[in-house]
């Protein structure tokens, strides 16, 4: 609100009756806005429904491509890092974005993984698990080898 209209409002205050009626004018405007938004949302929903599957598949593929590129770039670093970590040396390394998930492990593997991770920092356990699964899936030919 401009300074001029702010001052004007102070000089010429609307009374309660005007404010009451004006509040219904605002409701009308809001109602119109809501209608427009609903129409827009419906249109968007229809578009989304039509393209939903394709779009999601595209997103998944896109993510996969990104991941492959990202993983290729980072895999060497992770490998070196984990090698150092497993051998008892600690290297400072930047954290990368991950997806949270959970699964059951064999107790002996869980103990061993915990031992290794305890020497590192937060997130090292995830790196080790990722490395192990990636290695296995590369071996199975499910994913492309990182190098």
């Amino acid at each position: 609100m401009s300074n001029k209209s702010s001052l004007k409002d102070k000089i010429k205050k609307p009374n309660a009756t005007q404010t009451f009626f004006n509040s219904y004018d605002n409701v009308d405007v809001k109602k119109e806005d809501r209608k427009e938004t609903e129409i827009k949302n419906n249109e968007e929903d229809i578009i989304k429904n039509e393209d939903e599957v394709a779009s999601e598949i595209y997103d998944m593929n896109d993510n996969n491509i990104d991941n492959v590129v990202d993983n290729k770039n980072n895999n060497d670093e992770d490998d070196d890092y984990l090698r150092m970590l497993a051998s008892g040396n600690k290297i400072k390394k930047q954290k990368k974005k991950k997806v949270f998930t959970s699964f059951y492990m064999d107790p002996d593997l869980a103990v061993e993984v915990d031992n290794i991770a305890s020497r590192g920092e937060k997130g090292d356990k995830s790196k080790l698990i990722n490395k192990a699964i990636r290695s296995l899936l590369e071996q199975y030919g499910v994913i492309e080898k990182s190098r």
């Binding site: 009374n15 309660a16 009756t17 005007q18 009451f20 009626f21």
Partner: peptide, 13 residues
């Protein structure tokens, strides 16, 4: 006068 204002408001709108 307050009630007359309400009457005026209703009449106008």
């Amino acid at each position: 006068p307050k009630f007359l204002e309400i009457i005026d408001g209703a009449k106008e709108r």
